[in-house]
Write a protein that binds this DNA or RNA. Structure first.
Lengths: 124, 124
DNA sequence: TTTATTATTGCAACAAAGTCGCATTAATAA
DNA sequence: TTATTAATGCGACTTTGTTGCAATAATAAA
Protein backbone atom coordinates (compact mmCIF):
# COMPACT_ATOMS: atom_id res chain seq x y z
CA UNK A 1 0.00 0.00 0.00
CA UNK A 2 1.91 2.98 -1.28
CA UNK A 3 1.28 6.21 0.56
CA UNK A 4 -0.13 9.21 -1.28
CA UNK A 5 0.49 12.85 -0.49
CA UNK A 6 -2.66 14.72 0.42
CA UNK A 7 -3.36 18.16 1.80
CA UNK A 8 -4.89 16.64 4.92
CA UNK A 9 -1.71 14.75 5.69
CA UNK A 10 0.43 17.79 5.06
CA UNK A 11 -1.77 19.94 7.26
CA UNK A 12 -1.57 17.48 10.15
CA UNK A 13 2.17 17.03 9.75
CA UNK A 14 2.82 20.77 9.66
CA UNK A 15 0.82 21.28 12.83
CA UNK A 16 2.78 18.55 14.60
CA UNK A 17 6.08 19.80 13.26
CA UNK A 18 5.58 23.38 14.28
CA UNK A 19 4.33 22.50 17.74
CA UNK A 20 6.76 22.54 20.61
CA UNK A 21 4.54 20.21 22.61
CA UNK A 22 2.92 16.88 21.87
CA UNK A 23 -0.66 17.09 20.66
CA UNK A 24 -3.73 14.94 21.00
CA UNK A 25 -6.13 14.35 18.14
CA UNK A 26 -8.41 16.85 19.82
CA UNK A 27 -5.64 19.45 19.95
CA UNK A 28 -4.87 18.99 16.28
CA UNK A 29 -8.53 19.25 15.33
CA UNK A 30 -8.65 22.67 16.99
CA UNK A 31 -5.57 23.84 15.15
CA UNK A 32 -6.41 22.55 11.70
CA UNK A 33 -7.92 25.01 9.24
CA UNK A 34 -11.40 24.05 8.15
CA UNK A 35 -13.01 20.71 8.77
CA UNK A 36 -11.36 17.34 9.03
CA UNK A 37 -13.07 14.11 9.88
CA UNK A 38 -11.99 12.52 13.15
CA UNK A 39 -11.61 9.06 11.63
CA UNK A 40 -9.50 10.49 8.84
CA UNK A 41 -7.25 12.26 11.28
CA UNK A 42 -6.74 9.13 13.33
CA UNK A 43 -5.92 7.22 10.16
CA UNK A 44 -3.37 9.87 9.23
CA UNK A 45 -1.82 9.86 12.69
CA UNK A 46 -1.68 6.07 12.71
CA UNK A 47 0.04 6.01 9.34
CA UNK A 48 2.61 8.56 10.54
CA UNK A 49 3.34 6.33 13.52
CA UNK A 50 3.61 3.24 11.36
CA UNK A 51 6.02 5.02 9.07
CA UNK A 52 8.03 6.24 12.02
CA UNK A 53 7.63 9.95 11.40
CA UNK A 54 5.67 10.48 14.58
CA UNK A 55 5.58 8.75 17.92
CA UNK A 56 2.77 8.18 20.37
CA UNK A 57 2.67 9.09 24.01
CA UNK A 58 0.05 7.39 26.15
CA UNK A 59 -0.99 9.82 28.81
CA UNK A 60 -2.60 9.35 32.18
CA UNK A 61 -5.47 11.56 31.08
CA UNK A 62 -6.70 8.78 28.83
CA UNK A 63 -5.61 10.47 25.63
CA UNK A 64 -2.90 9.59 23.20
CA UNK A 65 -0.52 12.37 22.25
CA UNK A 66 1.51 12.62 19.09
CA UNK A 67 4.85 14.26 18.45
CA UNK A 68 7.26 14.30 15.54
CA UNK A 69 10.34 12.18 15.99
CA UNK A 70 13.22 14.58 16.35
CA UNK A 71 16.21 12.51 17.28
CA UNK A 72 15.07 9.32 15.62
CA UNK A 73 16.76 8.14 12.49
CA UNK A 74 14.99 6.05 9.94
CA UNK A 75 14.74 2.48 11.26
CA UNK A 76 16.17 3.50 14.60
CA UNK A 77 13.44 4.81 16.78
CA UNK A 78 14.35 5.14 20.38
CA UNK A 79 11.35 6.32 22.27
CA UNK A 80 12.76 5.83 25.68
CA UNK A 81 12.92 9.50 26.39
CA UNK A 82 10.72 10.90 29.11
CA UNK A 83 7.53 12.78 28.47
CA UNK A 84 6.19 15.39 30.79
CA UNK A 85 2.66 16.57 31.28
CA UNK A 86 1.99 19.69 33.31
CA UNK A 87 -0.98 19.27 35.59
CA UNK A 88 -1.81 22.95 35.41
CA UNK A 89 -1.37 24.12 31.83
CA UNK A 90 -1.87 20.55 30.54
CA UNK A 91 0.98 20.86 28.07
CA UNK A 92 2.65 17.64 27.09
CA UNK A 93 6.27 17.89 26.15
CA UNK A 94 9.20 15.63 25.39
CA UNK A 95 12.07 15.94 27.83
CA UNK A 96 15.63 15.57 26.64
CA UNK A 97 16.43 12.98 29.22
CA UNK A 98 16.56 9.36 28.19
CA UNK A 99 16.01 6.56 30.61
CA UNK A 100 17.96 3.38 30.82
CA UNK A 101 15.98 0.34 31.74
CA UNK A 102 17.74 -2.83 32.79
CA UNK A 103 15.44 -5.62 31.79
CA UNK A 104 15.22 -8.68 34.01
CA UNK A 105 16.89 -11.88 32.82
CA UNK A 106 15.18 -13.35 29.80
CA UNK A 107 13.02 -10.34 29.07
CA UNK A 108 13.02 -8.66 25.68
CA UNK A 109 12.62 -4.91 25.39
CA UNK A 110 10.37 -3.58 22.65
CA UNK A 111 9.30 -0.08 23.53
CA UNK A 112 9.02 2.30 26.46
CA UNK A 113 6.47 4.92 27.33
CA UNK A 114 7.55 6.99 30.28
CA UNK A 115 5.37 9.80 31.49
CA UNK A 116 6.04 12.18 34.33
CA UNK A 117 3.43 14.54 35.66
CA UNK A 118 4.04 17.66 37.68
CA UNK A 119 4.31 21.37 37.10
CA UNK A 120 6.40 23.01 34.42
CA UNK A 121 8.58 26.02 35.10
CA UNK A 122 5.78 28.41 34.20
CA UNK A 123 3.29 26.76 36.51
CA UNK A 124 5.46 25.73 39.45
CA UNK B 1 -16.50 10.79 54.09
CA UNK B 2 -15.52 7.88 56.29
CA UNK B 3 -14.90 4.65 54.48
CA UNK B 4 -16.97 1.55 55.28
CA UNK B 5 -15.88 -2.04 55.03
CA UNK B 6 -17.93 -4.02 52.58
CA UNK B 7 -17.64 -7.47 51.12
CA UNK B 8 -17.23 -6.01 47.62
CA UNK B 9 -14.24 -3.98 48.68
CA UNK B 10 -12.68 -6.91 50.46
CA UNK B 11 -13.22 -9.14 47.46
CA UNK B 12 -11.55 -6.66 45.11
CA UNK B 13 -8.68 -6.06 47.49
CA UNK B 14 -8.05 -9.77 48.01
CA UNK B 15 -7.95 -10.34 44.28
CA UNK B 16 -5.44 -7.54 43.83
CA UNK B 17 -3.38 -8.63 46.80
CA UNK B 18 -3.11 -12.24 45.73
CA UNK B 19 -2.28 -11.39 42.13
CA UNK B 20 1.34 -11.32 41.07
CA UNK B 21 0.49 -9.09 38.14
CA UNK B 22 -1.39 -5.83 37.82
CA UNK B 23 -5.02 -6.18 36.84
CA UNK B 24 -7.47 -4.15 34.82
CA UNK B 25 -11.08 -3.68 35.88
CA UNK B 26 -11.97 -6.25 33.27
CA UNK B 27 -9.49 -8.74 34.73
CA UNK B 28 -10.90 -8.28 38.20
CA UNK B 29 -14.45 -8.69 36.99
CA UNK B 30 -13.52 -12.08 35.60
CA UNK B 31 -11.92 -13.14 38.86
CA UNK B 32 -14.55 -11.91 41.24
CA UNK B 33 -17.10 -14.44 42.52
CA UNK B 34 -20.63 -13.62 41.46
CA UNK B 35 -21.72 -10.34 39.99
CA UNK B 36 -20.34 -6.92 40.63
CA UNK B 37 -21.41 -3.77 38.89
CA UNK B 38 -18.78 -2.11 36.73
CA UNK B 39 -19.41 1.36 38.14
CA UNK B 40 -19.15 0.01 41.66
CA UNK B 41 -15.87 -1.66 40.91
CA UNK B 42 -14.42 1.50 39.43
CA UNK B 43 -15.55 3.41 42.49
CA UNK B 44 -13.86 0.87 44.73
CA UNK B 45 -10.66 0.96 42.70
CA UNK B 46 -10.66 4.75 42.70
CA UNK B 47 -11.09 4.85 46.46
CA UNK B 48 -8.19 2.43 46.91
CA UNK B 49 -6.02 4.70 44.78
CA UNK B 50 -7.12 7.79 46.68
CA UNK B 51 -6.30 6.09 49.96
CA UNK B 52 -2.94 4.97 48.65
CA UNK B 53 -3.47 1.24 48.98
CA UNK B 54 -3.35 0.65 45.27
CA UNK B 55 -1.63 2.39 42.40
CA UNK B 56 -2.64 2.86 38.81
CA UNK B 57 -0.69 1.94 35.73
CA UNK B 58 -1.74 3.57 32.49
CA UNK B 59 -1.09 1.13 29.71
CA UNK B 60 -0.63 1.56 26.01
CA UNK B 61 -3.53 -0.83 25.40
CA UNK B 62 -5.94 1.87 26.53
CA UNK B 63 -6.69 0.24 29.84
CA UNK B 64 -5.76 1.24 33.34
CA UNK B 65 -4.21 -1.45 35.50
CA UNK B 66 -4.25 -1.63 39.26
CA UNK B 67 -1.75 -3.13 41.66
CA UNK B 68 -1.33 -3.08 45.43
CA UNK B 69 1.40 -0.84 46.70
CA UNK B 70 4.09 -3.11 48.06
CA UNK B 71 6.98 -0.90 48.96
CA UNK B 72 5.00 2.21 49.59
CA UNK B 73 4.61 3.52 53.10
CA UNK B 74 1.62 5.56 54.15
CA UNK B 75 2.03 9.09 52.79
CA UNK B 76 5.12 8.10 50.84
CA UNK B 77 4.11 6.63 47.55
CA UNK B 78 6.91 6.32 45.10
CA UNK B 79 5.49 5.03 41.89
CA UNK B 80 8.57 5.57 39.85
CA UNK B 81 9.19 1.91 39.40
CA UNK B 82 8.92 0.46 35.94
CA UNK B 83 5.94 -1.52 34.72
CA UNK B 84 6.22 -4.17 32.10
CA UNK B 85 3.57 -5.50 29.76
CA UNK B 86 4.24 -8.64 27.77
CA UNK B 87 3.01 -8.33 24.21
CA UNK B 88 2.36 -12.05 23.99
CA UNK B 89 0.80 -13.20 27.26
CA UNK B 90 -0.46 -9.68 27.98
CA UNK B 91 0.54 -9.86 31.62
CA UNK B 92 1.27 -6.58 33.29
CA UNK B 93 3.79 -6.70 36.06
CA UNK B 94 5.73 -4.33 38.26
CA UNK B 95 9.47 -4.50 37.82
CA UNK B 96 11.75 -4.01 40.78
CA UNK B 97 13.77 -1.39 39.03
CA UNK B 98 13.19 2.22 39.91
CA UNK B 99 13.98 5.01 37.54
CA UNK B 100 15.59 8.28 38.42
CA UNK B 101 14.33 11.23 36.52
CA UNK B 102 16.23 14.48 36.58
CA UNK B 103 13.64 17.18 36.16
CA UNK B 104 14.57 20.28 34.16
CA UNK B 105 15.18 23.51 36.03
CA UNK B 106 12.03 24.88 37.59
CA UNK B 107 9.94 21.78 37.06
CA UNK B 108 8.15 20.04 39.89
CA UNK B 109 7.82 16.28 39.93
CA UNK B 110 4.49 14.82 40.97
CA UNK B 111 4.25 11.28 39.70
CA UNK B 112 5.70 8.94 37.11
CA UNK B 113 4.15 6.26 35.00
CA UNK B 114 6.74 4.26 33.16
CA UNK B 115 5.68 1.39 30.98
CA UNK B 116 7.89 -0.94 29.02
CA UNK B 117 6.53 -3.39 26.52
CA UNK B 118 8.27 -6.47 25.21
CA UNK B 119 8.34 -10.18 25.90
CA UNK B 120 8.67 -11.76 29.32
CA UNK B 121 10.99 -14.67 30.01
CA UNK B 122 8.24 -17.19 29.30
CA UNK B 123 7.36 -15.64 25.95
CA UNK B 124 10.77 -14.51 24.68
C1' DT C 1 -3.53 14.19 -21.91
C1' DT C 2 -6.70 10.69 -20.74
C1' DT C 3 -7.85 6.59 -18.38
C1' DA C 4 -7.41 3.03 -14.92
C1' DT C 5 -6.10 1.80 -10.38
C1' DT C 6 -6.42 2.05 -5.67
C1' DA C 7 -5.24 5.01 -1.56
C1' DT C 8 -7.78 8.37 0.92
C1' DT C 9 -11.74 10.55 2.70
C1' DG C 10 -16.31 11.33 5.02
C1' DC C 11 -20.05 9.39 7.10
C1' DA C 12 -22.36 6.71 10.28
C1' DA C 13 -22.35 3.15 13.24
C1' DC C 14 -19.94 0.88 16.62
C1' DA C 15 -16.86 -0.57 20.68
C1' DA C 16 -14.60 -0.10 25.02
C1' DA C 17 -13.25 2.43 29.15
C1' DG C 18 -14.81 5.06 32.51
C1' DT C 19 -18.13 8.47 34.89
C1' DC C 20 -22.43 10.30 37.01
C1' DG C 21 -27.13 11.01 38.93
C1' DC C 22 -30.47 8.81 41.45
C1' DA C 23 -33.07 5.66 44.13
C1' DT C 24 -32.20 1.72 47.15
C1' DT C 25 -29.50 -0.90 50.43
C1' DA C 26 -26.67 -1.61 54.25
C1' DA C 27 -22.60 -0.40 57.52
C1' DT C 28 -21.80 2.25 61.38
C1' DA C 29 -22.74 5.56 65.06
C1' DA C 30 -25.98 7.27 68.37
C1' DT D 1 -33.12 0.01 67.88
C1' DT D 2 -32.95 3.81 65.14
C1' DA D 3 -30.84 7.46 62.41
C1' DT D 4 -27.28 8.73 59.33
C1' DT D 5 -24.92 8.46 55.29
C1' DA D 6 -21.51 5.54 52.61
C1' DA D 7 -21.90 2.05 49.20
C1' DT D 8 -24.35 -0.21 45.60
C1' DG D 9 -26.89 -1.17 41.16
C1' DC D 10 -28.89 0.59 37.28
C1' DG D 11 -29.09 3.15 33.24
C1' DA D 12 -27.71 6.78 30.64
C1' DC D 13 -23.94 9.20 29.09
C1' DT D 14 -19.12 10.85 27.56
C1' DT D 15 -14.85 10.31 25.34
C1' DT D 16 -11.43 8.06 22.67
C1' DG D 17 -10.69 5.44 18.99
C1' DT D 18 -11.97 1.97 15.15
C1' DT D 19 -14.37 -0.02 11.03
C1' DG D 20 -17.27 -0.90 6.82
C1' DC D 21 -18.73 1.22 2.86
C1' DA D 22 -19.49 4.29 -0.89
C1' DA D 23 -17.58 8.45 -3.00
C1' DT D 24 -13.44 11.05 -4.16
C1' DA D 25 -8.95 12.01 -5.71
C1' DA D 26 -3.71 11.06 -6.22
C1' DT D 27 -0.75 8.51 -9.00
C1' DA D 28 0.64 5.21 -12.58
C1' DA D 29 -0.17 3.52 -17.13
C1' DA D 30 -1.59 4.11 -21.82
Amino acid sequence: MKRRTTSSKQAVFNILKSSEVALSQDDIEKKVAGEMNRATMYRILNSFCEDGHVHRIFSDDGRTYFAVCLNCKENDHHHNHVHFRCLKCLRMECLKEEIEIKMPQGYTFKDANCLVTGYCNCCS
